[in-house]
């Protein structure tokens, strides 16, 4: 681009809207400062712009070096801090350069543009209505029944086509939420499938257990606590549920379903790590604090002649958080 063209361009722009970089200084000069002459101001402005130019240049050079740094760091192994550090510094320096140019070397205005009317005129509205209703509806004007039929078939398409989008997504709940894999006589096993014997836990010990054959099952997970060496009656009717002081509670919180794995041995409480519901172990894991609404269901336990812990039955109520059908079964 030669200088002649350049000059013409600026000229053209100025004519069209006073778009020149000098606008900024013009504004400053407008504001009179007593005691300093016009030429002083111009000199100050010139020096200011020069300094800013240097800042922009240095930033962009810095950015270039940083991006080379990104490449080198990547090549030698891509250590996260150096890779990201160079990237961030490079982008920031480039950003600073661009912002300096935009903020100090480009026309700043203020410029103004007029808004347009948003609402249509009365005539435009009438024309719109005419096209929509008269022209568009002419075919159906005396064929109302056809319109109804078309609407009906479109609706039917919408409904039937939605079937797979809803029903095929998953199985019906059925009784899934009402039962676990615990059966009368199920041996109590660890997560590795090792059966638990009656002297495996010391008093004050805990273990996450499952019914035999279902180690790792989400619904059947149970927290086994040995709260004492003798049977504990947590509730009336549960006299035989805790041989040798072993208590089994569903590990699924009745609030939001998190595993209640936090056992406080001294205060005999179970705490849910998600929302801090607290259950009183010796009182049948009734919630004493926090948002959980119901006790953790207790698993009736027994010991066979070989000394293995066994479940007497499944939990007597659905485990886990509440749901709509919970009380209907």
């Amino acid at each position: 681009m030669d200088t002649k063209e350049n000059g013409e361009n600026i000229n053209a722009v100025s004519k069209a809207g006073n778009l020149s970089a000098g606008n900024n200084s013009h504004n400053l000069a407008n504001h009179t400062c007593e005691g300093c002459g016009r030429s002083d101001l111009a000199e100050q402005e010139r020096r200011r712009l020069r300094a800013l130019e240097v800042v922009a240049q240095l930033s962009v050079i810095g950015a270039l070096l940083c991006f080379i740094g990104v490449g080198v760091t990547y090549w030698v192994g891509g250590q996260n801090q150096f890779l990201g550090g160079f990237l961030a510094a490079g982008l920031a320096l480039l950003g600073i350069g661009v912002i300096v140019i935009g903020k100090y070397f480009m026309p700043q205005g203020p410029f103004v543009e007029q808004r347009h009317e948003i609402s249509s005129t009365v005539q435009q509205k009438q024309l719109f209505e005419e096209a929509l209703v008269e022209r568009g509806g002419s075919a159906f004007k005396r064929r109302k029944f056809l319109g109804v039929l078309m609407g009906a078939s479109a609706t039917m398409f919408g409904i039937t086509f939605a079937f797979p989008w809803i029903r095929s997504l998953g199985p019906l709940p059925g009784k899934t939420l009402f039962q676990t894999w615990w059966r009368p006589g199920s041996r109590v096993v660890t997560v590795h499938g090792r059966p638990v014997k009656v002297d495996d836990l010391e008093v004050g010990g805990i273990l996450t257990v499952f019914p035999e054959g279902h180690a790792g099952s989400s619904m059947s997970q149970t927290i086994l606590i040995r709260a004492a060496s003798l049977p504990i009656t947590t509730r009336k009717g549960r006299e035989t549920w805790s041989p040798h002081g072993y208590l089994g509670f569903s590990k699924i919180c009745t609030h939001a379903g998190c595993p209640v794995g936090l056992y406080e041995e001294q205060s005999q409480q179970l705490l849910c790590p998600c929302h801090q519901s607290i259950f009183d172990v010796l009182d049948g894991a009734v919630p004493v604090f926090g948002p959980a609404p119901r006790p953790l269901p207790q698993l009736p336990l027994g010991v066979d002649e070989e000394g293995y812990l066994r479940a007497r039955s499944d939990f007597l109520e659905p485990v886990g958080p509440g749901f709509w059908e919970r009380t209907t079964a």
């Binding site: 836990l201 010990g205 606590i225 041995e265 001294q266 205060s267």
Partner: peptide, 13 residues
Amino acid sequence: IGPGNMPRFGPRT
């Protein structure tokens, strides 16, 4: 030993 509120994990656990 399960100090304080910590449960005890014996050699069989």
